[in-house]
Design a protein around this nucleic acid. Structure first.
Length: 471
RNA sequence: GGCGGCGUAGCCAAGCGGUCUAAGGCGAAGGUCUGCAAAACCUUUAUUCGUCGGUUCGAAUCCGACCGCCGCCUCCA
């Protein structure tokens, strides 16, 4: 039984989809004004694991992630780069897709963009206005927070206290400092769309309400995002959606903890960030995902290259195993032993861990226990039938690869890269083997060392010599 | 000021009332295998969970106080 910690109720709750086996899930995506940093990546990766696990459980998941492609930061950037705002967003949308692909994040079913849903957004604001939840001040439309009784419920905030202790800028036009913009009047040189309130663009919060409603209906199962979105973004989404649709908005709210640097939140504004791009140049997707998966998604996690080094070493352990499995399956051996391994127990443990509010750290532990057991059996048995490896691979494919994405059997295929041919490598291995037989270890070592420099690592075993490509 | 979170081995990090003399990863030490490497395996590495009290037959887990750290309350994953 899957349980999920729900930010709304501050409790772990039994997961019961509104319309099983369908699960509708929405995650706040990037504002495409720059490359996203590795802290953003944590949210995207963890949302990906949640989604994959729901699919593993047999749910039919519809996963939607929005792209905020018009907003103040994009406009600012476009001025700096002297580009049209949509050239900026286009550039970073492209980069976003490149990066999440490298992170091996499964693509969402739909990536709605704010600029492509302006009509729906306007329609929703009109409804809010008709119902008295919104007011227009000279082309700026605000949400009237005081009209929504449950405002503050998600974030546990009290409206009166918010106002008194707040750092909110006083805006003369707003009735209440907490009121937020639904529609922003266009200033000179800003992008705009026509509306009954004049030329303008949507506020940030309304796009998520309008687009989630459009693609998932007004009430859906899971809404996820970073901790910092709880207030005001998600609070505002609730206010908008519930007021407009007259029904509850989201059943389970999921929030991801921050990635910190030296105990401080990684953020663009603090400048203490690493782009996912640069991290991906040094580390594999599996290592990055393992690093994230080893911690509870909700809590804070410190980032450093030292920690990623450790994760990379851990991931290579799984990668080595994947290589052996691939190789042995290729051999298709029908003689030898079929060592007993109780895969269903590991699967039960894995499922129990993940069922407990996506305890990926525990899930990872199960995978490493499993890998150790498999390695032990490989070491203990002279020859093992291919069936053993097929069973082992099947389990890892569904869990470590399919849910967590911390192992990749495709990438683990030892294929020679640029300027290297596998036939030539095999030839050198053969020559080296002869040298070894003749006790010419100097030559044998020379071949091994020189190949290493070319990125080919040789490994001797009782089964013969194998090679793997290393960075 | 209001609200929320965190403090577990050298490092990261699960566990959240008994199975905990506390997972897993990294690191370290020793060993097996090996011509040497690499990989892999085996053994060791927290009688203790920020501090001090309390509740309980029983606490890392619940309660209180205190210390330290962080986040949200303005854009932010």
């Amino acid at each position: 039984m899957l349980t999920i910690y729900n930010t709304l109720t501050k409790k772990k709750e039994k997961f019961e989809p509104i319309n099983p086996p369908d699960v509708k899930m929405y995650t706040c995506g990037p504002t495409v004004y720059d490359y996203f940093h590795i802290g953003n990546a944590r949210s995207f990766v963890m949302a990906d694991m949640v989604r994959r696990y729901l699919e593993f459980k047999g749910y039919n998941v519809t996963f939607v992630m929005n792209l905020t492609d018009v907003d103040d930061k994009i406009i600012k950037k476009s001025r700096e780069e002297q580009l049209n705002f949509n050239e900026v967003s286009k550039k970073y949308i492209k980069a976003f897709f490149e990066d999440i692909k490298k992170l091996k994040i499964k693509k969402a079913d739909i990536y709605p963009k704010a600029t492509e849903n302006i009509n729906d957004i306007i329609k929703m604001i009109e409804i809010l206005e008709e119902k008295g939840f919104a007011y227009n001040v000279d082309g700026n439309v605000f949400y009237d927070v005081a009209k929504f009784k449950e405002y503050g419920k998600l974030s546990g905030k009290n409206i009166d206290e918010l106002v008194s202790g707040s750092r909110i800028e006083i805006n003369e036009e707003k009735k209440n400092p907490l009121d937020f913009a639904l529609w922003k009047k266009a200033k000179e040189g800003e992008p705009y769309w026509e509306s009954k309130w004049g030329k303008g663009r949507p506020g940030w919060h309304i796009e998520c309400s309008a687009m989630s409603c459009k693609h998932l209906g007004g009430y859906f199962d899971i809404h996820a995002g970073g901790n910092d979105l709880i207030f005001p973004h998600h609070e505002n989404e609730i206010a908008q959606s519930v007021a407009a649709n007259d029904k509850p908005f989201v059943k389970y709210w999921l929030h991801f903890g921050f990635l910190n640097i030296e105990d401080e939140k990684m953020s663009k504004s603090l400048g203490n960030f690493f782009t996912t791009r640069e991290v991906l140049k040094k580390y594999s997707a599996e290592a990055i995902r393992l690093f994230f998966a080893q911690a509870y998604y909700r809590g804070p996690l410190n980032f450093s290259y030292e920690l990623l080094d450790a994760a990379e070493r851990g991931a290579s352990k799984l990668k080595n195993l994947a290589e052996i499995i691939n190789r042995e399956i290729k051999k298709n051996r029908t003689d030898g032993n079929l060592p007993a391994i109780n895969i269903s127990i590991f699967e039960e443990k894995f499922t129990a861990a993940m069922d407990d509010d996506f305890n990926t750290a525990q899930g990872v532990a199960v995978i490493f226990d499993f890998a150790k057991e498999v390695n032990r059996l490989i070491a203990e048995n002279e020859k093992i039938k291919a069936d053993f490896y097929l069973n082992v691979k099947n389990f890892l494919e569904r869990t470590a690869a399919g849910v967590l994405g911390i192992i990749d059997f495709e990438a683990a295929k030892t294929v020679a890269g640029e300027g290297l041919s596998s036939d030539l490598i095999e030839l050198l291995i053969e020559i080296r083997l002869n040298a070894k037989k003749n006790k010419n270890f100097a030559l044998a070592d020379e071949i091994r060392n020189k190949l290493k420099k070319l990125g080919v690592e040789l490994r001797d075993s009782k089964e013969g010599t194998t090679y793997k490509m290393v960075k």
